[in-house]
Design a binder for these strands. Structure first.
Lengths: 202, 202
DNA sequence: AGTTGCTTAGTACGAGTGTTCTAAGGTACA
DNA sequence: TGTACCTTAGAACACTCGTACTAAGCAACT
């Protein structure tokens, strides 16, 4: 990526710090004062150049909508792709970052730890943490979704849900477990799978 | 913490979603339209109540400075265990929390995205993010560890490593890929698997 | 029916804000 | 010295935005 000039870097660093502490962007006039300038024009010029270089972006005409595109703060660097097959895939130089804290930062989310092996063919295994998003009505689930559902007599389990005109089918992704077929009013869908996390012990 | 009324919760969830995707706060009039209201007053009323309850805050008089407060500390609530087999496991009331941001907050870590299916039997599949810890010497790897290793002629791949007196064996966990057997000086181990993360698209 | 309390509609105002324009200042280079 | 180019100053404009205010709607209760 193209480098920043000294004045651009000074502004960029100040912006990162400001947004980090205030959790929102400053206005152009605030930047102006922080850079000890007496006119908004230089700030605007620097911002446009930094946008062209891919460091920042904002929504035109709207106040305080500036955002940092490549924050070098939170997160773990994503170095590239690795092949499991055997082909060569070079490590990238660009330092994209992943912040797993906000990776699953969705409203109404909770985590469950998996016991058992009924979702093994979807690569969800014993001990995995599954990130679920709350569901209040069964209508919010779509055909094939992996859901946490409660059925009388079966308890709460993690299954794939399929809809047919008369009934709802809950299928494990492991052939040794038979599907559960019930009418929609016998089932209570509590959440829908958003992600999976696994910690390998050493 | 004091609970939110339904309309407050609807607005709160929308705000979290908006800020998550746009990286800045909406204006009151944007909230107004999103809530299908025709006046800014109800939004203002709801915001003030949510601020009093400690959910949000903003800087008075300044545009788009609203921010979500996280009084429960970072993280997603861990509600309990869920069985994949069919047994009943009740949801826990205790609100243990998991912060995936610090979940993988280990020194010398980086992330790779997986291509291919050679680790499929260890439930690491295409598109998964693998969290690796840097390794400088092959001695830091233990028998059976999943490592990112570079072998001349094979590129950098994700495999299980096994040591024998004379050679090092890299095995995929997929029978259609043959193991690679080389002498220790032909292999360069770059990292060891610490965790796996997967995002399910909706 | 009347009262009370809360929510919503609608409007208005002033300050904040992004943007644009012209002019002045400064620097590099011929 | 002169020219070209970029940066800065300063002002002005139009629009956005937070805020305040009044009136109307609405439900619960007396």
């Amino acid at each position: 990526m193209e480098n920043l000039t000294p004045v651009q870097k000074e502004l960029y660093d100040w912006l990162v710090q400001y947004i980090n502490t205030n959790k929102h962007s400053p206005s152009i006039r605030e930047m102006m004062k922080a850079m000890k300038l007496r006119s908004p024009a230089p700030i605007q010029s620097r911002l446009e150049k930094m946008r062209n270089k891919g460091y920042i972006d904002w929504t035109e005409g709207q106040a305080r909508t500036l955002r940092i595109l490549q924050p070098h703060g939170e997160g773990i660097p994503l170095l590239g792709k690795i092949t499991a097959g055997g082909l060569v895939e070079p490590f990238r130089d660009e330092q994209e970052k992943i912040d797993f804290g906000s990776f699953f930062n969705l409203p109404n989310c909770y985590v469950l730890q998996v016991v058992g092996d009924s979702m093994i063919e979807d690569h969800i295994t014993e001990g995995d943490y599954v990130i679920m998003q709350s569901i209040t009505s069964i209508q919010q689930a779509k055909d094939g979704d992996i859901v946490a559902a409660r059925v009388e007599g079966y308890g709460t389990t993690l299954k794939k849900i399929y809809f047919s005109p008369s009934k709802v089918s809950l299928k494990a992704s492991n052939p040794k477990y038979a599907p559960i077929n019930v009418s929609p009013d016998q089932i209570q869908v509590q959440g829908s799978l958003m992600g999976v996390c696994r910690l390998h012990q050493k």
